[in-house]
Design a protein around this nucleic acid. Structure first.
Length: 271
DNA sequence: CGGCTTTGACCTGCGC
DNA sequence: GCGCAGGTCAAAGCCG
């Protein structure tokens, strides 16, 4: 059987949720070194072990072990109830070209930042928490993701009319942070960057997916079993051509993240 | 009154 | 040393 990832795309304000399914083999393109990574529904903390499991699922014939013989890997009940609608085209209003340009601009921006951070990080602040970046088409900046956040800062971004907001998880012992900003290339896209891992379950118990999620993935305790409202796909790293290779056929959303921060061994193969 | 946002000040690192 | 930019702090204010 073929495993698929259910990707739910949802604008919290106005859009009709739209779900698409991507075969894992498409996501991974059968090439571990050039993975288009995918955060499946509910899996916010994409650890190397999850990643490996996903990769194996994409390349091997894995029979599901759980009670549900579903062909989707992670799919919330809400997703199941939401038929794919023709309206999906209105959700992904930006053309592929625009998306592509936006991603490239962000990639460039990120490259610069990465260089800075590499210098900074190696010099002082020690190890950085892993970061996960999402690009989400939405009219609202702060998207509901099941956790409670407190805003602790906002800064104007150079060369951008849109400010960047800084949030911290309100859970006392959890030091997860996130930054929210608008994509310079496409203001309809919100870029959310998570830093760190939650040390607690989500206080908002909506849309649990554990009972429909793939047992293969649920083996990892790091997976968070709550579905974020918006799902995305795809990293940016410092290999621009890779981005195009990894882009989905229907690239409603391109994820943008420092995959090497998440799974360093998988993102870049040195000869 | 507690939780949250706002916003100016402050800190740090970097380039010139 | 200075200015800039990113990130954080913390006081003040808002709101339910």
């Amino acid at each position: 059987m073929e495993w698929k990832a259910a990707v739910k795309i949802e604008d919290p304000i106005r859009s009709t949720p739209f779900t698409d399914h991507f075969p894992l083999s498409d996501l991974f393109d059968g090439e571990k070194s050039s993975l288009g990574f995918m955060e499946l529904l509910g899996i916010q903390n994409l650890t190397p072990s999850i990643f490996d499991a996903m990769f194996q699922a994409s390349t091997q014939s894995i029979e599901p072990v759980g009670p549900t013989q579903t062909s989707t890997v992670a799919e919330s009940s809400e997703v199941l109830n939401q038929p794919t609608t023709p309206n999906s085209s209105s959700i992904s209003s930006a053309s592929n070209e625009e998306q592509s340009r936006a991603v490239e601009e962000e990639e460039e921006h990120q490259k610069t930042k990465k260089q800075l951070k590499t210098k900074k990080g190696s010099q002082k602040r020690g190890e950085r928490e892993p970061r996960y970046a999402f690009m989400t088409k939405s009219e609202v900046d702060h998207l509901e993701d099941g956790y409670r956040w407190r805003k602790y800062g906002q800064k104007a971004v150079k060369n951008s009319p849109f400010p960047r907001s800084y949030y911290r998880c309100t859970y006392s012992t959890c030091n997860v942070k996130k930054r929210v900003e608008r994509c310079l290339g496409d203001p309809s896209i919100v870029i959310t960057t998570y830093e760190g891992k939650h040390t607690h379950p989500s206080p908002v118990m909506h849309r649990p997916i554990s009972d429909v999620a793939s047992p293969g993935f649920s083996a990892s305790g790091a997976a968070v079993a709550y579905a974020p409202r918006v799902q995305v796909a795809m990293p940016l790293h410092d290999q621009p051509q890779l981005i195009n290779n990894l882009r989905f056929q229907n690239p409603t959303y391109a994820d943008y993240g420092l995959l090497q921060d998440i799974v360093p061994s998988l993102t870049k193969k040195e000869d």
